[in-house]
């Protein structure tokens, strides 16, 4: 029973470490897809006295994704019945041109001010509407959420690392007699610590597989999907090759590192 408990302490600690780390990746992916969605919906409205060229604006602002003209036909059609065709023609000539400017990514407030000033510096542009306030609020919320996840992960990771080191230390003391006898017969450090490496590696790999299983299965669960729909977010799919294998590699590396550091320090005979 005691032995099973000691295995659990490694499995749970590595699980917490990997789960937290993977959660930061998950959050980054959710935030990225959500911000891409906002960027897609977001546009700066420009009012210009003459025709604007996309390349010209790209020369001023590097983030420009596309520039499209907003047709004034709809407004003119609405006024068709109330105005004479002559006045309508005059209005059509006098009416400024409206443009929708899309950006490649969401800028922060500082950058938005720079963009606005740069656009106002253009001789043809007479007015700009950035909808900055709404956009800034959402952006800040995302940044805050992501920062909180990073801080949370950092503390969880630190506690998990301390627990793993503590358990490896306990195991080293438990196996100290065997290790010292092996030393007296000329066993190398790796040979006498082989059992510690084996136990830590197996437990770490179990943890990594549990984390992989959770991140693979969880997004498929109806309750999780329903929450995601309510929040209007797209859940990223777990990629075993690009996410699972690094997790397994990290768990392996961490197991080897923790035994090498702890056992080498206290296992000298």
């Amino acid at each position: 029973m005691k032995s099973i408990n000691s295995h659990f302490s490694i499995i749970i600690s590595v699980f917490v470490l990997l789960f937290s780390f993977q959660f930061t990746q998950f959050m980054a992916s959710v935030v990225e897809s959500y911000s891409a969605k906002i960027v897609d919906d977001y546009a700066i409205i420009l009012v210009a006295s003459t025709e604007l060229k996309e390349d010209e604006l790209k020369g001023i602002i590097s983030e420009v994704a596309s520039l499209s003209e907003i047709s004034s036909k709809k407004i003119l059609d609405r006024l068709k019945n109330d105005m004479s065709s002559k006045n309508l023609s005059l209005l059509q000539v006098a009416l400024p041109k409206f443009y929708s400017l899309k950006l490649q990514r969401l800028p922060n407030q500082q950058r938005m001010d720079v963009i606005k000033q740069a656009l106002l510096g253009h001789s043809s542009i007479t007015r700009i509407e950035t909808f900055a306030k709404t956009h800034e609020k959402i952006f800040k919320m995302f940044v805050l959420l992501q920062s909180m996840v990073y801080v949370f992960t950092f503390f969880m990771g630190a506690v998990a690392i301390l627990l793993i080191f503590k358990q490896v230390r306990i195991w080293t003391y438990e196996h100290n007699r065997r290790m010292s006898i092996m030393t007296l017969f000329g066993a190398s450090f790796f040979m006498k610590s082989a059992m510690l490496y084996r136990m830590t590696i197996v437990d770490s790999l179990i943890s990594a597989l549990i984390v992989c299983a959770i991140y693979s299965v969880a997004p498929e669960l109806p309750i999780v999907q329903s929450i995601a729909q309510d929040l209007d977010i797209v859940l990223p799919e777990f990629d075993f090759l690009y996410e699972g294998l690094p997790l397994l590699g990290a768990s392996l590396a961490f197991a080897i590192l923790s035994v090498s550091l702890v056992a080498r320090k206290i296992g000298r005979v």
């Binding site: 007296l184 000329g186 190398s188």
Partner: peptide, 10 residues
């Protein structure tokens, strides 16, 4: 020392 100990019987 480890190498030496491999040649000893204690």
């Amino acid at each position: 020392l480890n190498v030496l100990r491999r040649y000893l019987g204690v």
